[in-house]
Design a protein around this nucleic acid. Structure first.
Lengths: 107, 107
DNA sequence: TAAACACATGAACAAATGCTCATATGTTCA
DNA sequence: TGAACATATGAGCATTTGTTCATGTGTTTA
């Protein structure tokens, strides 16, 4: 027996404070229906900003603001193609995370 | 050629609006550092409210408010044990979702 | 080069969120 | 039964967040 309380014991095993914060920040990005809908749209195929805006029936500005957040979190990537900017899903983590969430919601 | 724009094509394949909303709501729950820390604490073992509060160095009230949200989303379960209420992780989806997020953040 | 097009961005504002404080509910035990 | 303990909850408040509106930046084309 160490004499430590359960709260203390568990506290000692908690991961780094900053990493937990980053993790919460990541999930926060998934936690908005506009951004989720953007990700689902990009699930199908890469698209320009205006294509996404049309697909979600939202203004170009609103979409652009959210794309910036998605890009900062490295959930999407972007490349220029003439006047347009083409956005696409960054990697497979995005798909996996969304799929897991999907399972939880649809069961 | 159908004459449909790309935005329209993708829109036609989007999942149900309400499900996407629920999915965003789910991730929103993970998207707060207090709740993430609670989940990590429960990762180790089930605990009472006051144990969690001590472990996270937060007030009982703040923890209780957040536990309610976690319970509503079915991410944690609770059972009474005397005066205490013992909370625990609901199922393995929670672990999987967090692990995937963890991979994205730590790589 | 000037106009047209595609996208990005800052300010402003309404809505949502998380904590605190006070207090209510529920359980045990003397 | 009443006091002590554990947890839940409502109101209030400060902060964060997402959209709109106006405008800025970058690219193509006439």
């Amino acid at each position: 027996m160490t004499g430590q309380s359960k709260g203390q014991e568990v506290k000692d095993q908690m991961p780094d404070e900053n990493l937990l914060y980053d993790l919460a920040e990541l999930f926060k990005v998934f936690g908005d229906s506009t951004r989720i809908r953007i990700l689902f749209a990009l699930f199908e195929s890469e698209m320009s900003v205006s294509d996404i805006a049309e697909s979600l029936q939202m203004t170009q500005s609103a979409i652009s603001h959210q794309l910036r957040i998605l890009k900062q979190s490295k959930l999407v990537g972007a490349r220029r193609e003439g006047k347009q900017i083409i956005y696409s899903l960054a990697d497979d983590h995005v798909r996996t995370i969304i799929n897991q969430g999907w399972d939880h919601v649809t069961e």
